[in-house]
Design a protein around this nucleic acid. Structure first.
Length: 355
DNA sequence: CATACGTGGAA
DNA sequence: TTTCCAAGTAT
């Protein structure tokens, strides 16, 4: 297949049928493209939109991000998941400010040296944000190339991924690379979808080997499945009724919910939590387990409800990473989504009643 | 190279 | 309800 075969078909298609109204496509500066690319890692476009708009409203420029606190960035990220992305983004902004005078480098290796930016994201920033010719290989591109070349394998396999990178390099044009890259992602998102691809309207159907072989529904192969381990545990819900506050603990990074505020967690012996409680608390109940599935394990967590009469801290929790969190929301904190859900369901928050 | 890292939507 | 997985990177 000729190296320009894809770009010749995709560039006109993008201009006619591609997406042009995504929030990060308006005023696509390097900073705006960078933030969008980080948010879009392993996260669907529809989910990202609202987070992106809110983020840009609060931190419209690189210097705003660099000058903000990690807590602020995590608050804006709460609910999106993969919170290392937010911590890395924040750290990278400070590196760019301190070392390069606030200018995002237009260089692949320099971009990749920044936390949170890998090869594909660096290519996207160079291409979409700086209008340079650079190669991307995200999930969409992997799927499109796998089908065009009828690569009957799982794209995550390192050998296959190498092959896909080589193909991606071959087909990326010197001119109009930004449009070409956007076309690949638009095609993957709207036509060459994982399930039920719309081959009848695909600009590549005449050259797509998977289509020629009628294998588009079977290519690429799915990720090999494995049984997720079950992790069981308890979380301490220490509630001060008079002040309407709960005890929260800032989670360490790295780790799940790193940097976010959660209920203190305990793995095996649920009662050791209450055994360490101060005198002026009263055990209420251990509730039914909440079920939560992460990408790599299932989690059954049983809330241990304890009432506190004083705003003192349990002995095991007397650290600077512990706080009494007022449920009226007067103190904005970055809470994990599962914690927000629990608070909403289980503890009456008198906000809507007053409106 | 394998695993850790979130969440919500779709089927 | 269960399963899959979406604009990946770090370690």
């Amino acid at each position: 297949m000729h190296a320009s075969a894809l770009s010749k078909k995709l560039i006109p298609w993008q201009q006619k049928k591609g997406r042009h109204d995504l929030p990060w496509q308006q005023d696509p500066t390097p900073y705006r493209v960078w933030v969008s690319e980080i948010m879009l890692q392993q996260t669907q476009v529809e989910t990202v939109k609202a987070y992106y708009l809110r983020f840009m409203q609060h931190l419209p420029r690189l210097q705003d991000l660099a000058a903000s606190s990690e807590e602020t960035v995590l608050q804006l990220w709460t609910g999106l998941g993969y919170y290392a992305r937010a911590r890395h983004l924040h750290r990278a902004a400070q590196i760019i400010t301190d070392q390069w005078g606030g200018v995002i480098p237009a260089d692949l290796e320099m971009l990749m040296a920044l936390p949170g930016i890998g090869r594909s994201t660096a290519g996207a920033i160079l291409s979409l944000g700086m209008k340079k010719s650079a190669v991307i290989l995200d999930g969409n591109v992997k799927r499109v190339l796998s089908r065009v070349y009828a690569i009957a394998a799982w794209p995550g396999d390192s050998k296959i991924e190498q092959q896909l990178w080589a193909l991606a390099h071959t087909h990326t044009p010197k001119t109009n690379a930004p449009i070409y890259n956007q076309a690949l992602m638009d095609l993957g998102a709207t036509v060459c979808t994982r399930r039920s691809p719309q081959c009848s309207v695909c600009p590549l159907r005449t050259i797509c080997l998977a289509y020629r072989q009628q294998q588009q529904a079977h290519i690429p192969y799915p990720k090999p499945k494995r049984t997720l381990p079950l992790v069981e545990g308890f979380m301490l819900v220490l509630w001060h009724e008079k002040n309407n506050a709960v005890l929260l603990e800032k989670r360490p990074a790295p780790g799940i919910w790193g940097g976010l505020w959660c209920f203190p967690e305990c793995r095996a012996p649920g009662l050791s939590l209450s055994a360490d409680l101060p005198k002026n608390t009263r055990y209420i109940a251990t509730k039914a387990a909440l079920h939560h599935t992460f990408s790599h394990y299932r989690w059954h967590i049983r809330p241990v409800i304890v009432r506190a009469t004083h705003l003192t801290l349990p002995k095991t929790c007397q650290q600077p990473n512990v706080i009494w969190y007022p449920l009226d929301g007067t103190i904005p904190l970055a809470l994990a989504a599962v914690v927000r859900k629990f608070l909403k369901i289980s503890i009456p928050v008198d906000n809507a009643a007053q409106e």
